[in-house]
Design a protein around this nucleic acid. Sequence first.
DNA 1: ATTAAATCCTCACGGTTGTAAGGATTTTTG
DNA 2: CAAAAATCCTTACAACCGTGAGGATTTAAT
Lengths: 88, 88
Amino acid sequence: MKIPLDHAAAIGNVVRASRKAQKIRQDDAAGSIGVSENFLGKIERGDESVQWGKLFQVLEGLGVRIVVDVPDNVAAWLNERRDDRGRS
Amino acid sequence: MKIPLDHAAAIGNVVRASRKAQKIRQDDAAGSIGVSENFLGKIERGDESVQWGKLFQVLEGLGVRIVVDVPDNVAAWLNERRDDRGRS
DNA sequence: ATTAAATCCTCACGGTTGTAAGGATTTTTG
DNA sequence: CAAAAATCCTTACAACCGTGAGGATTTAAT
C-alpha cells in the first residue's frame, strides 16, 4: 500500500502502525532495529528533529519502503553520475 | 517518476537532480526553501545525519514527493487514530 | 474496578547539527 | 587555456540529539 506523505510528522503514524501490525512492542522493535526505545517512541510521536539516517534505519527494520516521486524531467539529471568523474 | 530508496544517502542524488532539473543554484534554492546553502549542499552530498523535518522541507521546496510503501495489513492500524482519543 | 503492561516524559551526558562567514577546490564558461 | 561561477570545506557557536535510567501516565487485561 502506497501512502503519500503530506507533512514530515505523518511518518510517525506509519511507523507506529507498521510496528503494531507486527504485534511487537516499542522496546522489542527498538532492540532488534538497533535504536533506543526512547528514539523509536519519539519517531512514532511525530518528532521531526530526528536524524534522517536513523529514521531510515527504523523504516528498514519495520519493512517500510520509501519511494520518492519526482517529475519525469529529473531522471536525466539522475543519470548524470557524480562518481563517473574519474574518482574510482 | 517513482524511485525506490535503497539506502538513506541516495536521497541526496534525488535532491541534486531535482534542483539541477530546475536550473537553479544551490544558494538560490536554499534561499527560497529557507535553509542554508551549507545545509542543502550537505543533503546533496548524501549526509545521513540531517534532520528529517529539514530534509522534508527541502524535498517539498523542490517538488519532490515522498511515498511510503507498506504491507497492506498495516492500513488497519493506520485507521486506528490517536487523535480520536478525546483530545480534541 | 483493579492490576499489569506499555508508552510517555524527564534528566543528564557526550557528541552533534544548522547557520553564517570565508576561503579552497572543482566545474563551467567563453 | 584562463577566468568566472558554483560547490565544497573549515571554523565557531548556540541549540540540540540519541542514549540510558527511572518514574509518571496511559492503555490493556482481567
